[in-house]
Amino acid sequence: MLEVQLLYNYLVIGALLFGIGLVGLLSRRNMLIMFLAAEMMLQGVSLSLVAFGRFHNDWGGTTLVILILTVAACEAAILLALVQCLFHRTGNLDIAVWHDLRDANQPKFIDQEVPGDDAAKPEWPTLTPAGIEPEVDADEALEHRIHV
């Protein structure tokens, strides 16, 4: 494959990954999936960088991608802590719940009607109970699963 062609192909794939990640980031409402999408955009950029680096015979692209990896790791650590924090506040991962920074005269974000869950109730395998079932305090159990 010609070098120019290789570069071109990689740039297109990079753009595609960036675009797909963008769709995910913009439209998905689950914070974790948004994070995945953002990481995917980074992957697209990394691909372009590496391709350029190879094309120009330069280490810069590779170096930059290594740094991107580092930053992505930091990002993941912070983000996951934040997601945990937010999840404990509301009990779900919906990003649309958090719009407190809107302008004072803006209305609250109201969802369109929530469609019913079309997935069939999963059938979990059951195991034969072994030993005595532990005592479960009803209140405690309620509190434990209250959010989900």
């Binding site: 963008l22 769709v23 991962l93 919906d94 929530v114 997935a119 989900v148």
Partner: peptide, 24 residues
Amino acid sequence: LATPEGHAYYDRLSWEAPLSSVLA
């Protein structure tokens, strides 16, 4: 740790899916 049972409502909905798709 954080996923509820079944499909959460926010996993079954998208925010401005046409707009973001077209933009991408």
